[in-house]
Design a protein around this nucleic acid. Sequence first.
DNA 1: GTGAAAGCGCTAACAA
DNA 2: TTGTTAGCGCTTTCAC
Lengths: 336, 336
Amino acid sequence: MAVTIKDVAKKAGVSISTVSRVINNSKPVSLEVRKKVLEAINDLGYKPNEVARSLVTRRSKLIGVIVTDIGNSYIAEMVRGIEEVGRMYSYDIILSSSYGNKDTEKRFAQLLLSKQVEGIILISEEKDNEVIEEMIDKKVPFIYLNRYYLSDRITSVSIDYKLASYDMTKYVLELGHKNIVYITYDNNEEYSIEKYKLDGYNKAIKEEDGVGFVLRSDGYKIQDGYKIGQNVLDFIKEKSVSAVFCCHDELAIGLMSYFYDNNIRIPKDISICGFGDLKIASIYRPRLTTIREPYYDIGAVAIRRIIKVINNEKVDNENIYLPTQIMKRESCEKVK
Amino acid sequence: MAVTIKDVAKKAGVSISTVSRVINNSKPVSLEVRKKVLEAINDLGYKPNEVARSLVTRRSKLIGVIVTDIGNSYIAEMVRGIEEVGRMYSYDIILSSSYGNKDTEKRFAQLLLSKQVEGIILISEEKDNEVIEEMIDKKVPFIYLNRYYLSDRITSVSIDYKLASYDMTKYVLELGHKNIVYITYDNNEEYSIEKYKLDGYNKAIKEEDGVGFVLRSDGYKIQDGYKIGQNVLDFIKEKSVSAVFCCHDELAIGLMSYFYDNNIRIPKDISICGFGDLKIASIYRPRLTTIREPYYDIGAVAIRRIIKVINNEKVDNENIYLPTQIMKRESCEKVK
DNA sequence: GTGAAAGCGCTAACAA
DNA sequence: TTGTTAGCGCTTTCAC
């Protein structure tokens, strides 16, 4: 049996309220009594039962985080940000992985609510998120993070996708590339972020008199990038394309692997760039030129905002946009 | 204010115990009463407060997981295993990242205990783990996962490192390589797992009349592999080495990057293999030949064991060894 | 400055 | 089969 506040009170010869006061510093306690209590706590190795505390204070000091899959490096990065900032405010996080199932996401949100979490962060890769609808009228602060789809119903933290994509395209054009192909995914879906990226791309192409092409991938994973490899290759030859801009790093990496396996040299034969700046982007060779999406910061800002709401500090109801950066690396080369 | 069991009881016109009985199925309840209660629950959208439940049942349904850094892909893999199996038994996990600080690990263990977790899994990269000593006499089940160091004080889940390393070396020798260099790290430290790997390597070299060399790295990260690159290169030339066996995939990847940057072709100029089978091992080009350390399974088995202990099922007190596998890929080639 | 007592939402004896 | 009640470990009035 663990030692409780009662044991401490008895040992110190005081009431449990006094013990409570010293551990919480909630009310003045005379120096000598305080000392006795502290001693007793020390001797007994007493640690307050946070569950009991939560029950009465209604503050679990827990934030629920629902992710698609913690095995995704960008999600892990976000979670790092969430956890580290949460820690600064004494919050622990409960992690649940939905593996992309919407019903699971909903179920987990309920579960977390039962566990009395004070806020929920959903890192999703799905569209049409019904969880959002369910959460919207719940009292717990909620933030929705999604790298693929927007929601107009709820606050999120992200970057200015259009601008980022515009900047990147511009950079590629400045490198001397004229015929550029953009690999997109799912850009016709409502709320797809791809639309914004595509807009940025098109804007830059137009402004600089480039020749833009668009190719569609079936997915946004590494293997999807690999799968579309031959298509891209054929297309490149046909259209004299000298640079490929992928809407996600994963696609770019898959493509680079396909090129490697087929003896296409990067950047000698073709320049390539991505979007995201996953960890692998700077590990893979040649290192991938890409746009840095600050995942850690996104997580950090998200939880910071949740904690503000919990503490009734005032927050904007608008989406938060974080700065990005073009990571110039070897996969994208000047045209000779 | 959330709806409580009282509200349900009132609405259904029964006592709270009856409500408790139907939600827990703990005692028989007449069909019609049950129906009334279920209706009330439904109407009110009642969800039991798990915190209150925990307080009385002393079962938080929470497992604490302390990791070095969830950003490490092998750790993320372990956590996936932990979470997914935990979920099967209705356990949630609380995640804390220590970033390699031993004091932080200890502090987190205490924090988790305060939150009444029913078990703790520590995924560490440190040696001399004092947390273990602290946990050993605590009542909560505890498992220690460490890819670098062993402990003789506590149960763990791992693989047979010596055998794995032996098998891999044997495979490389069978490929026709004779002069092989092994890149090690920290093999003189007590409890270092490297000793076992090195043993396996030496054993195979001896048995097959190979010529073995050992080189030491300063660390086990990708950048450490890169840093040791020139050393390895010089060494290879001097000793006519045709294959490099790295004690961790990270080192192998770093090394491959160094080779890429210096126009050394793999496997044409040199064969290389690693240990771990991180996700990146099969993404990087050429794909890395390596030993599969089943991280997901390690996590899964670890939490399964913890849950068994929680439920007083009997478990061995011995370490658990999981099977491994050599992943034969392109980075390691037959000698012509 | 300190203690007694109520109560957070729930489960589990114990009665009936 | 159902209700009453004690109590899990703690915080927080309310008296003194």
